[in-house]
């Protein structure tokens, strides 16, 4: 991936990451109308389109800030495929029917397709991880929250009234517990294959 040339549309990714209102506005002006049309033509409406677009942009933002998203294709294609995929999944969820992604778009821009796929998997993993984190016991949730918010393990131990060694050990066991929950979920195996 690193050898591929960065597309000039990376500016949209960087703008989202910096919470730049002008860039967000530009995305809505330039790329969103096409998505709204598509959703409206495929059993959706304006409100549904608004949600799909918002969720998609949040996923892109999250991936960019955690994984340093490098755009190697036009933003337009990448964003459209992502929104479309999300909308089709939404339809599938509500109708219990198998919905497949249009082949025409699949072959149109492989690079965009590949990148959009990575982002979509990232987004679905985030949802799954958040869900599993909620399943942890309160002690683990509190410890992990403190660990990643405070950063210094010494301070975490102090704030929880335990020793440094104990806090450290507990941290690895809690992430371990989360690892097990995630690995056991069928959704995770689907996403990883």
């Amino acid at each position: 991936m690193s050898e591929k040339k960065l597309h000039e549309d990376q500016k949209y990714i960087d703008g989202l990451l910096k919470n730049n209102s002008f860039i967000i506005q530009a995305i809505y002006d330039k790329f969103v109308p096409k998505v709204i049309n598509y959703i409206k033509q495929n059993s959706g409406d304006g409100d549904k389109a608004q949600d799909v677009i918002q969720d998609t942009l949040i996923t892109i933002y999250n991936q960019a800030s955690e994984n340093k998203l490098q755009l190697t294709c036009p933003f337009d294609a990448y964003f459209f495929i992502l929104c479309k995929r999300k909308w089709l999944n939404e339809l599938k969820k509500n109708s219990n029917k198998e919905v497949t992604i249009n082949e025409e778009v699949l072959s149109k821009d492989d690079e965009a397709q590949e990148l959009a796929f990575e982002t979509a998997v990232f987004g679905e993993k985030q949802v799954l991880f958040t869900e599993m984190f909620q399943k942890l016991g309160t002690a683990c949730k509190d410890l992990l929250t403190a660990t990643f918010k405070i950063k210094s393990m010494e301070e975490v131990a102090k704030s929880l009234g335990v020793t440094y060694a104990y806090a450290r050990k507990k941290k690895s066991l809690c992430i371990g517990k989360l690892t097990e929950l995630v690995q056991k979920s069928p959704k995770f195996n689907q996403l990883n294959n």
Binding site: K125, F148, I175
Partner: peptide
Amino acid sequence: AFNTYKELASFLEHKFE
């Protein structure tokens, strides 16, 4: 297990930071 652990640690770090 290691890869999942690593992915989760990065997820949590990002989520709270």
